[in-house]
């Protein structure tokens, strides 16, 4: 394929052309200014796909689960796209993206599109450009978009402000009932998956999660009661149940009207994140101008970081 401007790729992507979609995903990732009008146009065609986030600690089985879930979605006739995120090196900026290794069985099905993305310094478990990538898939007619986050710790919860349904994967043997009542990642789950349930200690993990849910700590996100779904890739169990649960959650959000609040929360987070990005880019561009003077004042401690930032933003406003 020869070089095409982003605006010329949009109609092809809307028609489902794989190469055009793939090229736009690259431009989403690079944040190229040339592609901004194209993403504005694509955004007008979004809002139909159901966006499902899959998160959990490294090695909990996210990629395996995503591969099986995608196969189950395909068996039901729906088109599915996967955004699979792995970490970038903090030193070289490079990345090894290995999520496809577990997704071999999906190869060759035109109804499945798998895209690997590197975090590129983004801290909350998502990648830079991940949500523009979701927009591309949504506009291109994929019914469900699965976002597989990086392996997270306890506090990378950005996915809950990016997805309609958040699935948190826990593996057996990684902590006790106190871990289960801590704040953070477990609170954001609409559906809990306990993976590797062929293992003997899985029952305890399931029980800990169910006890946590009975304490009511996870009920802050509306009327839906989070559910626990045991899965086992070895025994090929639980995946259909998980898909059914995701669909039930989607229907519950629509029935209660909570879907509107979720979409508003996603939009708000994206607006703020975009604002931060624009500001950061302008700061960087201005590093040798006004910013250098402010940095010198900071070094002399005649100005605090907060006051310096306030001055800088005021000045950006005048120059906008």
């Amino acid at each position: 394929m020869v070089y095409l401007a982003s605006s010329d790729l949009v109609p092809k992507a809307l028609a489902g052309d794989t190469r055009a979609i793939a090229r736009l995903l690259t431009r989403a990732e690079s944040g190229s200014a040339e592609a901004r009008p194209a993403f504005d146009e694509l955004f007008r065609h979004t809002g139909r796909a159901h966006i499902v986030g899959i998160t959990g600690v490294p090695g909990s089985g996210k990629s395996t689960l995503v591969a099986r879930l995608a196969a189950a979605i395909r068996a039901g006739g729906r088109k599915v796209a996967i955004v699979a995120i792995d970490p970038s090196s903090p030193f070289s900026g490079g990345a090894i993206l290995g999520d496809r290794i577990r997704m071999g069985e999906l190869g060759g099905d035109p109804g499945v599109f798998v895209r690997s993305m590197a975090t590129r310094g983004s801290m909350g478990g998502l990648a830079r450009g991940a949500l523009e990538a979701v927009d591309v898939f949504d506009a291109a007619g994929y019914d469900i978009v699965l976002i597989e986050t990086v392996g997270v710790g306890q506090d990378e919860v950005d996915i809950a402000r990016a997805a309609h349904t958040t699935v948190v994967v826990s593996a057996p043997g990684l902590g006790d009932d106190i871990q289960a009542i801590k704040a953070g990642i477990l609170e954001i789950a609409d559906v809990h998956v306990v993976s590797k349930c062929d293992r003997a200690d899985a029952d305890k993990t399931i029980a800990d999660l169910k006890n946590m849910l009975m304490l009511g700590l996870a009920s802050a996100r509306g009327t839906w009661r989070p559910q626990v779904v045991p899965t086992s890739a070895v025994r090929d169990e639980g995946v259909q149940e998980l898909l059914t649960m995701i669909d039930r959650h989607r229907e519950a959000l629509a029935a209660s009207g909570e879907i509107d609040a979720r979409c508003a929360a996603i939009a708000e987070r994206r607006l703020l994140a975009a604002g931060e990005e624009i500001l950061r880019d302008r700061f960087v561009r201005d590093r040798h101008g006004r910013l250098a003077g402010l940095l010198a004042q900071l070094a002399r401690r005649s100005l605090s970081p907060h006051s310096a930032a306030t001055l800088l933003i005021a000045e950006l406003g005048e120059n906008a």
Binding site: A22, G94, G98, R100, G104, G107
Partner: peptide, 25 residues
């Protein structure tokens, strides 16, 4: 990776057609 590239590893035992489809996506 250490040279700053994004490297996608397919894993073992792929067909040529699977590799090409992955490369396109």
């Amino acid at each position: 990776r250490d040279a700053g590239m994004d490297v996608i590893y397919t894993g073992l035992h792929r067909t040529p057609e699977e590799v090409v489809e992955a490369a396109v996506q």
